[in-house]
Design a protein around this nucleic acid. Structure first.
Length: 463
RNA sequence: UCCGGCGUAGCGCAGUGGUAGCGCAGUUGGCUGUUAACCAAUUGGUCGCAGGUUCGAAUCCUGCCGCCGGAGCCA
C-alpha cells in the first residue's frame, strides 16, 4: 500500500490521477444523490480530504454507512476537481478499505464539543483533534527550527545527562532517582538512608537544568546548546508550569551579556518567523478558535526589535508609572508578574530584555558587576506571558564564585567540576534557558501549558 | 502551598428550597453536491462523595475528593 499524504494531495495541481490516501474519519455526510461524503484527516496538515463514496462500492451498505469519527480507512480512487464549493479537490473513491471501526457510543471524540480538561484524560487520542494536531505540528516546527538556528550559527548540540548527582543548584525541588526498596531501604548507623548502597553509590535525581554540564562543554567546544527534558518536583499548579518540560540552553564561550541578549533576540525572532512561514493553516485555526490576534502578534514580534532596559531603570519606570500595583515596586524587589507584564505590554509594547538584576535575587553563578550590587543577568519578557527566557553571563573568576557559593550556602565540594572550569583556563561565557513549552504556548495561543506537550506531567497528573 | 470558582445524561451546559431541562452524540424516520449539513420523533441522570438543616435539598450548611483560574516558585 503506497499512500500519499493528504498534505501532498491538497497541494498538487494534478487532476484525474489515481491515488491512495489513508487516514481517520472526521465526519460522514450521506447524500441521497447516490454517495456519501467522508472527510478524512491523516495529521499531515490541518485540512481534511473530502472523499466521495458512491453507493456502488461493494461495501457501501455494510461498512461505509458504519463509518463514524475515528474510524480508519484506506481510500483508492481518482483525485478530481470538487463540484462543491468548500474545497478545490476531492477524492472519488473506487475502493474504500476499512481498517478499523470506531463505535460512536464508545469513541469519545465525536462531533460534539469536548473540553481541553476532558481531553487531558485522553492523551492517547487527543492528537486526533484539530487543536492538538495543530499544536503537534507547530511544536515540531519550533523544535526543528531550534536545531536549524543553532546549527546555522555553528553551535554544537550537546546531550547533557537526565540523571544527575548535582546536589540541587537552587533551580527547584528535584525528583529522586533510586533503585532502593522504598519500604526497606538500607540505613546507616544514625538511621538515615544509606545512599552509598544505592544504584549510583550516591544520591541521584532527575536534572532540573543542563546548564552546568553545558558550561563544561562550552568551555571546550566554544558555542553549544542543549535541548532536552528537565524535571521540577515543585508543587506549582498553574497554567504555565509542568513537572516535566523541555528546555533549550545555549552557552557561549568568550561571550558577555550583550552577546547573550543578542542571541536570545535573534533566536526568538527566528522562531516567530519560522512558524509564520511554515504553519499558516494551523496558525489561522489558533487565531480563529483559540486566541484571536495571536497571528498578528507573531507578525509584529517577528519584525520588531526588542526593547532593552536595566533592572534599575525598569524599577524607576515602574515607580514613576503612577499605576496601582498590588506590590509596590522598589529597588531590590523580585519583579512580580504584574510588573513584568506592565513593562512588556504598556511601556515597551513588545518584547523587552531586562538586564543587571540585584545580586541578592539571582543565582550564585551569575557574574558580579563592578557596581558591587548587581549581576550580569537578563530576563526576556513577552507581552501576555511574561518571562520566557532567563540567562546571564557566568561568573568566571574563581575567587568571586567561591564567595558567592558560600553566601548561598552551597557546599563547594559538590561543585568541584564546576570550579575546575575556573581553575583551568577560565574564560568569560554566557548563556540562557528557554522553556520550550512556553514558546509553543506563546505561538499557538493555547491557554494551558498542559495542552502543548503530548503527555503533560504536573502534580497529580501522569496519564 | 495560598485565594477564588466549578463538579447536573456519553460530551458541552442551564436550572438558587416544591416531582430534573436544553444542545450535541446515540436510535428511528425524512431531506439534501453536502461542509461541525439540515428537519422531526425518541432513548438516556443515585445532580462528585459523606454528613447536616428542612415537611421537602441539584439548590442552604459542614467536611472530604477532583478539576479550573489567579498568586507564589520558576522556564
Amino acid at each position: 500500500m503506497k499512500r500519499t499524504r493528504i498534505a501532498c494531495l491538497l497541494k498538487t495541481e494534478k487532476r484525474g490521477i489515481n491515488v491512495v490516501a489513508a487516514g481517520w474519519v472526521r465526519t460522514r455526510r450521506d447524500s441521497k444523490g447516490g454517495f456519501s461524503f467522508v472527510e478524512i484527516n491523516d495529521g499531515s496538515c490541518f485540512a481534511n480530504l473530502q472523499v466521495i463514496a458512491p453507493v456502488t462500492l461493494t461495501n457501501y451498505e455494510d461498512e461505509i454507512l458504519r463509518l463514524h469519527p475515528g474510524a480508519s480507512v484506506v481510500v483508492e480512487g481518482l483525485l478530481q476537481a470538487s463540484e462543491g464549493s468548500g474545497q478545490s479537490v476531492e477524492l472519488k473513491a473506487r475502493a474504500i478499505g476499512v481498517l478499523g471501526f470506531a463505535p460512536p457510543v464508545e469513541y469519545p471524540l465525536g462531533k460534539q464539543k469536548i473540553s481541553f480538561e476532558r481531553l487531558r484524560e485522553l492523551p492517547h487520542l487527543r492528537a486526533r483533534t484539530n487543536s492538538f494536531g495543530a499544536v503537534a505540528r507547530v511544536r515540531n516546527v519550533l523544535a526543528h527550527e531550534t536545531h536549524r538556528f543553532f546549527h546555522d550559527r555553528g553551535f554544537l548540540y550537546v546531550h547533557t545527562p537526565i540523571i544527575t548527582s548535582n546536589d540541587c543548584e537552587g533551580a527547584g525541588e528535584m525528583f529522586q532517582v533510586t533503585a532502593l526498596d522504598p519500604h526497606a531501604p538500607p540505613r546507616r548507623g544514625d538511621g538515615a538512608v544509606d545512599y552509598a548502597k544505592d544504584f549510583f553509590g550516591r544520591r541521584a535525581s532527575l536534572t532540573v537544568s543542563g546548564q552546568l554540564e553545558g558550561e563544561t562543554y562550552a568551555c571546550a567546544m566554544g558555542d553549544i546548546y542543549t535541548f532536552g527534558p528537565t524535571f521540577r518536583a515543585e508543587n506549582s499548579n498553574t497554567r504555565r508550569h509542568l513537572s516535566e518540560f523541555w528546555m533549550i540552553e545555549p552557552e557561549m564561550a568568550f561571550a558577555d551579556l550583550d552577546d547573550d541578549a543578542e542571541l536570545a533576540e535573534a533566536f526568538l525572532r527566528h522562531l516567530f518567523a519560522a512558524v509564520l512561514t511554515q504553519c499558516g493553516a494551523d496558525l489561522r485555526f489558533f487565531d480563529q478558535r483559540i486566541l484571536p490576534g495571536v497571528l498578528a502578534r507573531l507578525e509584529r514580534l517577528a519584525n520588531a526589535p526588542f526593547g532593552r532596559v536595566t533592572y534599575t531603570e525598569a524599577v524607576k519606570l515602574l515607580e514613576g508609572s503612577g499605576k496601582a500595583f498590588e506590590f509596590a515596586p522598589f529597588w531590590g524587589m523580585d519583579m512580580q508578574s504584574e510588573h513584568e507584564r506592565y513593562l512588556a505590554e504598556e511601556v515597551f509594547k513588545g518584547p523587552v530584555v531586562v538586564t543587571d538584576y540585584p545580586e541578592a535575587i539571582k543565582a550564585f553563578y551569575m557574574r558580579r558587576n563592578d557596581d558591587g550590587k548587581t549581576v550580569a543577568a537578563m530576563d526576556v519578557l513577552l507581552p501576555e506571558v511574561g518571562e520566557i527566557i532567563g540567562g546571564s553571563q557566568r561568573e568566571e573568576r574563581l575567587d568571586v564564585l567561591e564567595v558567592a557559593m558560600s553566601k548561598g550556602g552551597l557546599n563547594p565540594d559538590n561543585y568541584s567540576f564546576y570550579l575546575d572550569l575556573r581553575r583551568y583556563g577560565s574564560v568569560p561565557h554566557a548563556g540562557f534557558g528557554l522553556g520550550f513549552e512556553r514558546m509553543v504556548q506563546f505561538c499557538t495561543g493555547m491557554h494551558n501549558i498542559r495542552d502543548v506537550i503530548p503527555y503533560p506531567r504536573a502534580p497529580g497528573l501522569c496519564y
